[in-house]
Amino acid sequence: MKEIKAKDVTSTVARLCTEANFFLGDDVLAALRKAREEEESPVARQILDQILENSTIAAKDEMPLCQDCGLAIVFIELGQEVHISGGDLYQAVDEGVRQGYAEGYLRKSAVRQPFSARVNTKDNTPAIIHTEVVPGDQLKITVAPKGGGSENMSRFTVLKPAQGRQGVVDFVVSAVEEAGSNPCPPTIVGVGIGGSAEKAMILAKKALLRTVGEPSPDPEVAELEKELLQRINATGVGAGGVGGRITSLAVHVETFPAHIASLPVAVNLQCHSARHKEAVL
């Protein structure tokens, strides 16, 4: 049994909130530079230049990469040998979000009673927390701020099993094409295939945490990812939606067994400001 103090969870979450919002990952930067090299459209190239310059300014001045600092999506992998002491784990996470968003001058974008009053909670809580209990005595925390522009373009469907692979390809490509300029392309496309409705979407979201462009370890899934990326980049949407060769930097697909009657497919789009930072306690 390992003891981890709730206050250490809080300070870690606070730090991850600001780091994720200021510093783009090296994998995302490398993918953006590669897109800049390959893009043929002069306007799209100009947009990619601005995106890259923006990341430099954000890191240097410790300014948010995007004014939409997102809802705080927090993934927790809790080792079953861990005991959290001195407080409630989820309260500790929310307190970390509260501190991080205040100290980092990050925008608070959470509104309560979303169908009517839409009153800002003023501290960007509650965080959206996904917890998995895993073997071991470590606590892994990933903070992935998610903006509204890309999240609003999420799509979910349940295909007939007979629609198969082709049905999946057509659904994902049309989701990205119809989203056009809205989700701030070049995007990273998270796809969840299988499970139940909620399982498919969480798979799609988790797929966004993978190192950009790293293929699935399953060769058949990796092949599907490759075809999807090619089809998506053939749509011509391009960076900023102004027309170009690079609409998405990568497609990441995660799968799970499904019911004999179902082929659920979820698409979760990530804008080019693909922010996530993690820590292990």
Partner: peptide
């Protein structure tokens, strides 16, 4: 259109 996500640059 301004570039979505180029928020520190635009500032």
């Amino acid at each position: 259109a301004a570039v979505g996500g180029a928020a520190a640059l635009i500032a």
